[in-house]
Amino acid sequence: MTITQLYYVLAVAEQQNFTKAAEKCFVTQPTLSMQIQKLEDELDVLIFDRSKKPIELTEVGKKIVNQAKNIVNESYRIQDIVDQEKGFIGGEFKLGIIPTIMPTLLPMFLKAFIKKYPKIKLKIEELTTEDIIARLTEGHLDAAIAATPLEHEAIKERVLFFEPFVGYIPENHRLHKKVTLETTDLEIDDMLLLQDGHCFRDGVINLCKAFKNQIDDQFQLESGSIETLVKLSNEGLGMTLLPYLHTIDLSDKAKKNLRFFNEPTPAREVSLLYHKSELKMQIIDAMHGVISGIIRGAIAFQNVKIISPLSK
């Protein structure tokens, strides 16, 4: 039994196809098939039911795959040990970021991070929280940046910063003349929200539900981006809530529509996520240090109340 054979098994289990798995592993399909066959012969079991389309794991195959994930992850740790011993901070690093954080946070830290750690080859993807959880647990991401807490047993969360919610209220709105907002001012019926699947949407709903006993979850209008929400609000279709970092680059005219909450300010917790196996911790530590250092100069809010992104 070899680690390579287990790696091939994991690839077939994920792709449910020998040809696609071979392409992912950069080997020929006969080579991959032969190695898996050798493993099955050694164990005297069938890992895959090849009669099914797509290919399925047998019952014992499911147990083998679960254990293979642990073994392959632990094998990666050996290289981690060597890298840390040598003080090496580099290599490929796959990072996922949720859509409501990507456009504001990434430009703030990316250039500084690349300059400080030129040997790290970053691969960054914009992903939903659901996809991030799946990819972290499957080992396809090294780390991610998302709103927390997520309370997932396989994922560790390391807080980066707290980002306040800010009201964006157009001139014709009932709350426009208010200098500051109370959470009790919010009414979900005239709130523009992101489409389902965005954790910031869930945070806004949870914020409103914390102060309303009965809320109808049928909303007037939903959009796929925060920028669109601002434009729709300017058209008089309702107010919206923005993450604080999205307010920094608004025009002077648009900033006149911003209303901050009285303390404790409702905010989302933004964290660096990684698998509990703690692989590539030297890079995770480096990223946490760079982002935390930069963000301290951008967000000065202290007295905040964390609004969970978990759907309730």
Score class of each variant (00 low, 15 high):
7 Y>G: 06
11 A>T: 07
13 A>Y: 01
13 A>K: 03
13 A>N: 09
15 Q>V: 07
18 F>I: 05
18 F>L: 11
22 A>Y: 06
22 A>Q: 10
23 E>F: 14
24 K>E: 15
28 T>S: 11
31 T>P: 01
33 S>W: 03
34 M>L: 14
36 I>K: 07
38 K>F: 11
41 D>G: 07
53 K>V: 12
61 G>Y: 02
61 G>T: 08
61 G>E: 03
62 K>N: 08
63 K>L: 09
64 I>F: 14
65 V>A: 03
65 V>L: 09
74 E>V: 00
81 I>R: 09
82 V>Y: 12
84 Q>I: 11
84 Q>Y: 08
85 E>M: 12
88 F>C: 01
89 I>L: 08
91 G>E: 06
93 F>A: 02
97 I>M: 10
98 I>Y: 00
106 L>P: 01
113 F>W: 05
115 K>C: 00
122 L>C: 11
124 I>K: 05
125 E>W: 06
127 L>Y: 04
129 T>Y: 01
129 T>G: 02
130 E>V: 09
135 R>S: 06
137 T>E: 15
137 T>L: 11
138 E>L: 12
139 G>F: 02
140 H>D: 14
141 L>P: 01
142 D>L: 06
146 A>C: 09
150 L>N: 04
151 E>Q: 12
152 H>Q: 14
153 E>I: 12
154 A>G: 02
156 K>A: 08
158 R>Y: 05
159 V>E: 12
159 V>F: 05
162 F>N: 08
165 F>M: 15
168 Y>P: 00
175 L>P: 07
175 L>A: 08
181 L>P: 05
182 E>C: 00
183 T>E: 11
183 T>W: 04
183 T>M: 05
184 T>M: 12
188 I>L: 15
189 D>K: 13
191 M>C: 15
192 L>P: 02
196 D>R: 11
198 H>G: 00
199 C>H: 00
202 D>S: 15
204 V>I: 15
210 A>R: 10
210 A>K: 13
214 Q>H: 13
218 Q>V: 13
220 Q>V: 14
227 E>R: 10
230 V>K: 00
232 L>N: 05
236 G>V: 13
237 L>F: 15
243 P>M: 07
244 Y>S: 00
245 L>W: 06
245 L>Q: 10
245 L>F: 09
248 I>K: 09
248 I>F: 11
249 D>E: 15
249 D>H: 13
252 D>Q: 15
257 N>R: 01
271 S>H: 05
274 Y>T: 00
277 S>A: 14
280 K>C: 12
281 M>C: 09
282 Q>P: 03
283 I>E: 00
288 H>V: 04
295 I>Y: 05
298 A>V: 00
298 A>D: 02
299 I>H: 00
300 A>P: 02
304 V>W: 00
304 V>E: 07
308 S>R: 06
310 L>H: 07
312 K>V: 14
